[in-house]
Design a protein around this nucleic acid. Sequence first.
DNA 1: TGCCAGGCTTCAC
DNA 2: GTGAAGCATGGC
Length: 275
Amino acid sequence: MHQVLIRDLNLSLTAESGQCFRMHPDGKGGCQVIARGRLLRVESLPEDRYLFHCHAEEYVSIWENYFDTGTDYARFFSSVDPGDSFLTRAVTFARGLRILRQEPWETLISFIISQRKSIPAIRHAVACLSERFGVEKTEGDQVFHAFPSPSALAEQGPERLGACALGYRTSYVHRTAIAVASGKFSLEALAGAGDAEMLESLMTLPGVGRKVAACVMLFGYHRLNAFPVDVWIDRVLKREYSDTFPFNRYEGFAGVLQQCMFCYARSLGPSCGTD
DNA sequence: TGCCAGGCTTCAC
DNA sequence: GTGAAGCATGGC
């Protein structure tokens, strides 16, 4: 057990923000998350304190980084143009949201699966792949499955992968797994690339277009300037900004604001509160 | 029952 | 280079 003080952290909002699919709120401000081959429970305590159900060493070596506790999000939010009422409302709504530092591989496959799927459907597919093809582990008296490795997915036939409701994305997942498992595509080497090079490189993978690549950059490589445009953000950019969002003003962290707008827009519904 | 979902690929033009 | 069609399936 390890107790820490973390300001500006909203675990349930982060868990349901659509950036991760194996993090579940406990309904009391805490959560349970499976990531980096481990299962962790976090309890919320009064006055911005959190009880991590792990040793202090594990907190320092893994979770401190995973929850991105070292980044000053208040600085991002306070830089928002006060005259931009939509963005001001979005960052107020999303206070406590963090961009998790997830593993590139899991993020890549999760967002290939995500295309034209709802968030609950993505969760089910990711859970199914993990349960069927991931290594079984235990944490205390709880059994869980790590996210499957590239080779574990590459060696499955498409019919076995497709049993997890991947639909037409099955061959994308399979072919991408083969590319990574064979070493033909190195996610490790990509970490040293510049943003433009990383985007182009990711888009060479099957099933990875501009939007999925941006998600992998933002959520898997913590490139905070990456700005995924999905159907929700596309509606926001058109309705609120007439397709002229001031990216230059938010250079270096536009992706954090994008995630705030995504959460806020979803809370309003498809009409973005215009009806 | 019908519509929509954190889109991508393919193929005309 | 641009735009439209087609795609599998689950959730609401």
